[in-house]
Design a protein around this nucleic acid. Structure first.
Length: 579
DNA sequence: GCCGTTTTCGGCCCGACTGTTTTCAGTCG
């Protein structure tokens, strides 16, 4: 079993924590954290890179030493230095640092003074009132620790973007009512449209005259008075942090208007993108922070994000690209993609109806799609193997084909396309015979069972399915459900190559809990010349609106309208489906 | 431990906020 990037990153982070507790050189500690971030965010597996003979020390923040450590980890599954450190410092101390308000120094103090070696020890010490007796701690610290142990135990899973929207939108509406608020934006990974977000970073500017002490604190007061606030962690003139009842952490920051762009840039991240931009600024003799771009103490830019990028000689970079995945080089060379927008979408190629597990009729789906301004809507009900969804057999599919033909005669502003989401069986054959598949406009094939095949077998299964003359689009290619079910193992590069060679397309499933293909997957597909279908897998007419989540993900994957088949006209699309 | 148009040594982001202090250390982002 090859070591996954996240496991390598976890080991580096644990090592960094323990070294920090041991008071190691802080820059060495940071080096491990930086390396962890690089490895965690790297689109390709370290083991794959090594297999291809790549030199890992070429990666940012990975030098000779860490390249060798990764090599050893991939080979043996072990990080000897971590084991050595863990033999003299209790490994669980690393976990204690995840408790809000506890850093390396305080964890070390509690370990030395109270022999706190684990979360349980910490809990007991807090309950017994021992912590307040340690110098440097007090009653309040002890109370906070007690509270945050519970919060930590309640889980620290990232929130799906759609759920984050449900939490953020009413809060933003509420904040807008605060006296003196001028602009408001949710920054952070929410603005980068990442599939999940950790916390909400809300940025506001206040009206002139109200940016003084009084205006800001009234905004903060309004914020912390919000009904859903469960706990106020900190509250200051320019920054406050709360936990909502949902468990979501929200940071609110107030900046003056002249700093709005710089602050947006700073708080939108990603961190590595910001560092790279700041470094470019330093080389030009500027200092860039959340308040602006400064030259010798004088602000020379910062009211808009565009002005910040301009000062370092770059065009505006859309938030979705700010992940240090090559966007700065592309921007320097004037090669940023012209990202796809929701308006580019002309149809939806994966939807279900009442015939299987959908909620609406063909006609209702057609009408809803027409209202969205679509030219076409593909109907892809399930095939017979999926009995729980009343999957269609040959006879019922033929009936649906007839029904669609009839309906199309009556519809004048939209065309329904005949299709199926056919199950890919374990051996790579399809769940319905070619004799019926060939009557369809196109075919979506998906895996709904046997998720646990080996990577090799799962890949071969898909490759074989795509070889079928009538196969058009691979549906939800990894099968993952965010926070619920891991992706099944596939060699995506091989699948993409297979798709290219057999004239197939890959779906970006826009369901907020799927978002499958990933952003990195989209980018890889684009680089390999494989086109994408962004589709909602709608099980009701209202689900058609999930398209925007798919478009967001596509933008994170650098996709342009020309990379997406459902940005084509119906005529062009039909040509694409002819193998 | 990484990095280099100030290149093999000497830097490595820093401001806001809290709590425990009595002028500041620790944490966070």
């Amino acid at each position: 079993m090859p070591m996954h990037n996240s496991e390598i990153a976890d080991s580096f982070e644990r090592l960094a924590d323990l070294l920090e507790i041991e008071s190691a050189n802080p820059f060495r500690v940071r080096a491990y954290r930086n390396a962890a971030r690089t490895v965690r965010g790297y689109p390709r597996g370290m083991s794959d890179l090594l297999e291809d003979g790549e030199d890992l020390s070429e990666l940012p923040d990975i030098g000779k030493d860490l390249a060798e450590k990764i090599h050893v980890m991939v080979e043996t599954g072990k990080l000897p230095l971590l084991e050595e450190v863990e033999s003299r410092t209790p490994p669980a101390l690393s976990e204690l640092m995840k408790i809000e308000g506890l850093g390396a120094i305080r964890v070390k103090t509690l370990y030395k003074k109270l022999k706190v070696k684990s979360l349980d020890d910490l809990k007991t010490a807090a309950q017994d009132g021992k912590i307040r007796e340690v110098s440097g701690f007090g009653e309040k610290s002890e109370e906070k620790i007690r509270k945050h142990i519970e919060r930590y135990a309640g889980g620290q899973e990232r929130t799906k973007l759609m759920d984050a929207e449900d939490i953020a939108k009413p809060l933003v509406e509420y904040l807008k009512k605060a006296e003196g608020i001028k602009d408001i934006i949710i920054a952070g990974s929410y603005r980068r449209r990442k599939e999940t977000v950790g916390d909400l970073d809300i940025l506001v500017t206040a009206k002139r005259g109200l940016t003084g002490k009084k205006g800001e604190s009234s905004i903060m007061g309004h914020f912390t008075d919000y009904d859903e606030v469960d706990e106020v962690v900190s509250k200051g003139k320019t920054r406050s942090t709360v936990y909502l009842r949902s468990g979501m952490q929200v940071d609110l920051r107030v900046v003056p208007q002249v700093s709005y762009g710089a602050a947006q840039h700073y708080f939108t991240g990603s961190k590595s993108h910001n560092i790279a931009v700041r470094t470019m600024g330093v080389k030009k003799g500027y200092k860039i922070n959340e308040y602006g771009v400064f030259k010798g103490g004088k602000r020379i830019a910062g009211e808009t994000e565009k002005s910040v990028y301009e000062k370092v000689g770059l065009p505006y970079i859309p938030p979705e690209l700010r992940e240090s995945r090559g966007e700065l080089d592309a921007a320097k060379e004037g090669k940023l993609p012209k990202l796809i927008t929701l308006e580019d979408i002309r149809g939806n190629l994966h939807t279900h109806t009442k015939a299987t597990d959908g909620r609406n009729t063909l006609k209702e789906m057609a009408q809803a799609a027409s209202e969205l301004g679509y030219e076409y809507l593909g109907i892809t009900d399930h095939s017979k193997r999926l009995t729980v969804a009343k999957g269609l057999n040959k006879k019922r599919l033929l009936e649906q084909i007839e029904e669609i033909d009839k309906l199309n005669e009556k519809l004048d502003d939209i065309v329904l396309l005949k299709s199926i989401e056919v199950d890919i069986l374990e051996d790579g054959s399809l769940d319905l015979p070619d004799s019926v598949l060939k009557k369809l406009d196109y075919v979506v094939g998906s895996i709904h069972h046997k998720f646990d095949l080996s990577r090799k077998k799962q890949t071969e299964r898909i490759l074989k399915a795509m070889d079928n003359d009538y196969f058009s689009i691979l549906g939800h290619p990894s099968g993952r459900l965010i926070n619920e079910r891991d992706a099944y193992e596939i060699d995506l590069e091989k699948v993409l190559r297979g798709a290219r060679d057999s004239g197939c397309f890959i779906e970006l499933n826009a369901q907020p809990e799927r978002l499958d293909l990933t952003d990195d997957g989209c980018k890889m597909a684009k680089e390999m010349g494989v086109k994408i279908s962004i589709a909602t897998d709608a099980h009701s007419s209202s689900n058609l609106n999930y398209m925007r989540f798919g478009v967001d993900q596509a933008r994170r994957g650098w996709l342009e309208a020309k990379d997406v088949i459902n940005c084509r006209s119906l005529k062009e699309l039909k040509k694409l489906f002819k193998k």
